[in-house]
Design a protein around this nucleic acid. Structure first.
Lengths: 147, 147
DNA sequence: TATTGTTATACTCTATAACTATA
DNA sequence: TATAGTTATAGAGTATAACAATA
């Protein structure tokens, strides 16, 4: 239980892989309960802070822009989002969440039970400490991850 | 930088999502450099500790057994694994990595640069502490994630 | 000319259901 | 009967290339 046995970097990598896999599966399961795929939920999640052009969504998901057409098509057919031609540049289409879309993605996030439960296994001070460490890892994960 | 501003659980969830996404993308990019998809690399990874029946691979990947047929087909066509009928139960096929498969997946893991870099951003004592925390989160992530 | 979004295409991953060969 | 693996099918995500509309 204690870390007195000096875990190696490989141990940490393996643990991170477990957390990564569990969180992604948990997210997919929560999305499925609301009729969404994991990718659809991820796109909806990106839109929670305001509308985004198709191109911007592709950049955030680190995938080709052509993929977004289909994902947004399916979200739109379920009434979770709609497209609006940008007034300033008629080539651009802004994707906007509907009230239904906003409510749904918030429920999905609220239902990520495994992750919530795992965080509750830590005390208040430990959570702050974990946040501190992850926050310092973040820039490196983000910057190199975009390659 | 310090956590004195009392990060909320939502902050932690958002950070974990960033780490999760970055690590998965990093893994996929490393796999692609060696001609593998992320799922093929994940299967190869499971086999590094010894052969496994098709069914056991499906359980570890938390997916239907029928998917494994195709993934192993593609791994086999590239010479990374081969199937062996089990001597004790002729219904069972054990999947065994070739030398090429073993070398390749080890290179993939060694090349997970973003994750390695992020871990290196922490000091020795911090890595031990992070390991300790993640290790306590693990049982909950795993148990509920398998639903 | 360059950019945004779409379409067409091909491949991979995924679940479901039906099938086979073993047990 | 039950189990291991396969096949068939359909839907979704992915990259590439070519295209229309707009800048």
């Amino acid at each position: 239980m204690s870390a007195s046995t000096a875990p190696t970097r490989a141990d940490l990598l393996a643990l991170l892989a477990v957390i990564t896999t569990a969180q992604w599966q948990d997210f997919g399961a929560a999305a499925a309960r609301h009729g969404l795929t994991a990718m659809q939920a991820k796109v909806l999640s990106q839109l929670d802070n305001g509308p985004l052009p198709m191109r911007a969504i592709a950049e955030r998901l680190v995938c080709d822009a052509s993929n977004i057409t289909g994902i947004v098509d399916r979200l739109e057919s379920h009434g979770f989002v709609h497209r609006e031609v940008s007034p300033s540049d008629r080539r651009v289409k802004n994707v906007v969440t509907t009230d239904s879309g906003r409510d749904t993605i918030r429920r999905v996030r609220a239902e990520m039970r495994a992750t919530h439960g795992a965080l509750d296994a830590l005390g208040e001070a430990e959570r702050a400490s974990l946040y501190d460490m992850l926050d310092r890892m973040r820039p490196i994960m983000e910057s190199r991850g975009q390659l």
